[in-house]
Design a protein around this nucleic acid. Structure first.
Length: 334
DNA sequence: GTCCAGGAGCCAT
DNA sequence: ATGGCTCATGGA
């Protein structure tokens, strides 16, 4: 679906550089999108959100029906940002492809307007290599330190903290493991360095991933040390255009066990088979709704495991599976 | 102190 | 194929 641009009534003619641009949007929850664990470099500021995209400082503000971007370097073309924001997505059409099961419908209702972004593949790969067994605030700090120490300074408006681009592969490939560890990333340092070297030397060509079949693209990523199924799927979904990729982390695993199979003990293999057949062509979008729903609505209550020795989960308002719901089990009973 | 985090690699069954 | 154990680090 083509991305609409320049429909702001007061927008200048094409070719004129501006510092601000407004798009009309429907159902775009900017805060939920930027806080849902896809990206790690955005901070709320003065009622908007500020971050760095493609080496540009960007401030985003939202109203119920518009999204406005500001930069501090005049832009003649805003399509790079529209693409990053995935403004061309028809969210209603995407949600319409979801299976009508109660858990997913509840998650969609609770997180209306949550979107996926289309990130730079290298930043995404590097960030998720740093994400393993880390909480999101800590990932944000490690990535921030990495950018401060290795990234190119970028122009920011007066009064703002200094901004830095995400460091390119060649820059990190040339860093020592000790320098990387000093950013707080621990045992992930050699993984990040190896990935930077693979991309910088052309052994791994991230720009070609979108042209490959999903399984092939996944194999290329998983060839890197420190990159397994989950991190590979994050890159495929968040940066390479594979909307069917379905990263399974501890939260999504919890969602699957508690919301879909509350009184069974399915091994991860069976659960993965379920995710590959149940959620449809936008499975990755569905995954993002389940992930965010588990985090913001259930929070701490989600940690008890109904299938484990602790018994029933705690009494959050939406903590229970709708009574009597049983997903189609025939398709994976073999 | 103990547990856990948007995991993955290694080794023993 | 599957189940433990370990790898840093910091916050609750």
């Amino acid at each position: 679906m083509p991305v609409e641009t320049c429909v702001d009534p007061g927008a200048p003619a094409a070719g004129v550089a501006t510092l601000r641009h407004t798009w009309p949007v429907r159902e775009y929850d900017l805060a939920a999108t930027l806080e849902s664990g896809q990206v790690f470099r955005w901070t709320p500021e003065d009622g908007g959100w500020e971050g760095i995209v493609a080496g540009h400082w960007v401030r985003l503000t939202a109203t119920p029906h518009t999204l406005t971007a500001e930069t501090c370097v005049p832009q003649t073309d805003w399509n790079w940002l529209a693409r990053w924001l995935r403004l061309g997505d028809d969210l209603g059409a995407i949600v319409a492809t979801f299976p009508p099961d109660p858990p997913l419908q509840e998650a969609v209702s609770a997180c209306r307007g949550l979107r996926l972004l289309r990130q730079d593949p290298w930043e995404c790969l590097a960030s998720f290599i740093l994400s393993s067994t880390k909480r999101i605030p800590h990932i944000r700090r490690i990535v921030g330190t990495l950018c401060t120490r290795f990234g190119r300074p970028v122009p920011v408006p007066p009064g703002r903290a200094p901004g830095f681009a995400f460091p390119p592969p060649a820059r990190l490939a040339g860093a020592t493991e000790a320098e990387l560890r000093a950013c707080g990333m621990g045992f992930r340092a050699p993984y990040l360095r190896a990935a930077a070297q693979a991309v910088a030397t052309g052994v791994l060509r991230l720009e070609t991933l979108p042209e490959l079949p999903l399984a092939t693209a996944r194999q290329r990523l998983m060839a890197l040390p420190g990159v397994g199924r989950k991190i590979a799927d994050c890159v495929l979904l968040f940066a390479a255009g594979f909307d069917a990729a379905f990263p399974v982390d501890v939260w999504v695993l919890r969602a699957l066990r508690q919301l879909y199979f509350p009184r069974r003990r399915l091994p991860p293999r069976r659960l993965r088979a379920f995710t590959e057949t149940h959620f449809g062509p936008y499975a990755g979008y569905a995954q993002q709704y389940l992930f965010h729903y588990m985090r913001v609505r259930l929070g701490r209550n989600a940690r008890s495991d109904p299938a484990g020795p602790t018994g029933r989960s705690g009494g959050g308002p939406a903590a229970g599976t709708p009574a009597g719901f049983c997903p189609q089990v025939g398709q994976f009973s073999r």
